[in-house]
Design a protein around this nucleic acid. Sequence first.
DNA 1: TAGAAGATAGGA
DNA 2: CCTATCTTCTAG
Length: 214
Amino acid sequence: MSATSADDSLARLLAEPALEVAPRLLGSVFWSGRVGVRLTEVEAYHGQGQDPGSHAHRGRSARNGSMFEDAGTLYVYLSYGIHRCVNIVCGPEGYASGVLLRAGEVVAGLDEARSRRTTSRSPADLARGPGRLGSALGIELGDDGSRLVDDAPGQEARFRLRLPSAPLGPVAAGPRVGVSGHAGGDAFPWRFSLEGDPTVSPYRAAVSRRRGGA
DNA sequence: TAGAAGATAGGA
DNA sequence: CCTATCTTCTAG
């Protein structure tokens, strides 16, 4: 039995551009220790100068350094000063593209996820939205730059990914959530989700901050 | 050094 | 619908 074939397929997938990788991550189970989340919603972000919505658009900075690492690195950042969001870096090394994990269904470690997400009112709420997903998985800022490996028997790494073994249902594509810099809104339909899944987060346009008026 | 915006969540 | 929350980035 070859234990490396599955590992190779994950590495091969993550070497592709983010726009190819993102929809193909749907249905995978992302593991953080004993908690597993089946991904139902993701977004693709491209690299420097390619994508005005990307944290890497204006080049490398203190925050986004891990986006410039090789495929399979995790990019974790603090969102709105509160939430920890997770990306899987993909594409050619140095291209700084990645896939934001936006939502999923908790399929293992339910008690642990629940204890971290005490405000959730239903199982579908546990990881519906990128901040909630990060919280349910116990992601911390110190996890930025961690490696993601294939979830194979005997694999002891904390962060693992199991690609789907069966075909998925229909995939929906649309504009990314809360991202400005879109000319008309549909210039970057790089959000992908499993159609009709209850754990997919609702769409919201980018917030325009209005404080104290004009 | 200062100001504004940001890949959100939760509550009214 | 509104606001808490605070880091990061950009301009001056």
